[in-house]
Design a protein around this nucleic acid. Structure first.
Lengths: 148, 148
DNA sequence: GCGATATGCTTGCACTCGCAGGCGATTCGC
DNA sequence: GCGAATCGCCTGCGAGTGCAAGCATATCGC
């Protein structure tokens, strides 16, 4: 528990929780979406042709396939995303971002960046940020479907 | 989105999610507790006299008071924690860790440390870990009820 | 003292999520 | 071709959580 690894892992969880909690409130208040819906749109934006099979989306987002199914329903209803069935494999249902969805993502991303600025802005030197980025990139490595 | 702050915030969320997901499986399989129950016990351990009012616990854990109430029920039943009413203020219900609870925490902490080792061990230099720790400490600063 | 307000805890309701099971589509072995 | 195994998706159920409301206790203004 005085172990550096352990301490850092604990702090990592705490910082991430704090950040996510703050984000959650602002997202639902300003943009009317949840953090997960935001991440879903972001994954689409970072993918080829703004579309992904539901299963891929589930893997990338650390949630089950059923969650994607259920998340998609209201988002389709509001017009943020659309569904599209693959021509070759009728099992694959693609989730594709609409123009409205991409616009919403863009707004939400501005809010995200603002909060990221609050988090790091006045506490860190630029050089530290680069080290931090390099560190985090290595910690993610291995999954492949990285978001950043 | 190519902003360093934004990138780092995204990576931070992703790494934390990955780590928490891995932890969750091992905790429930080996120790029979959830990550949140582990964190609850840890907060108690790091507090004065191994006891905290439910409200404090809620604030520290980023959950609502009702969640603490409901989490406590099965944990009391299993004997990990006990309840204790304040003498001066009968509204305050303290959650206090039992000997069994502290033992369980100790085992779980070993698992936690092991996984923290997996996460950082082969990817980081010792010097980097110190920088990382310093960085994270600053990012947490302000809340006061820090865990690490 | 005594009512008004504030605080801590608990409970009803609604929502989100994962898991298990089922359905339809595809691919593989022969 | 054809049955079996696999894969992607959706639905029933149970677990966990937050919010609003309610209750008990404590504190403040007078």
């Amino acid at each position: 528990m005085t172990d550096v690894y352990t301490t850092n892992a604990l702090r990592l969880l705490q910082v991430a929780d704090d950040f996510r909690a703050g984000l959650s409130g602002e997202f639902s208040a300003i943009h009317g979406i949840s953090v997960n819906e935001f991440l879903l749109l972001l994954h689409l934006e970072r993918s080829a042709a703004n579309r992904l099979p539901r299963v891929d989306l589930a893997r990338r987002m650390h949630v089950s396939a059923s969650t994607i199914t259920r998340m998609a329903v209201p988002m389709e209803k509001v017009g943020l995303i659309d569904r599209e069935v693959d021509q070759r494999d009728a099992r694959l249902v693609f989730v594709v971002a609409t123009t409205a969805g991409r616009a919403k993502l863009s707004e939400a991303l501005a809010t995200f960046s603002k909060r990221a600025g609050y988090l790091f802005g006045d506490r860190c030197e630029d050089e530290e940020m680069d080290q931090f980025a390099s560190m985090l990139r290595r910690l993610i490595a291995g999954t492949g479907d990285t978001l950043a």
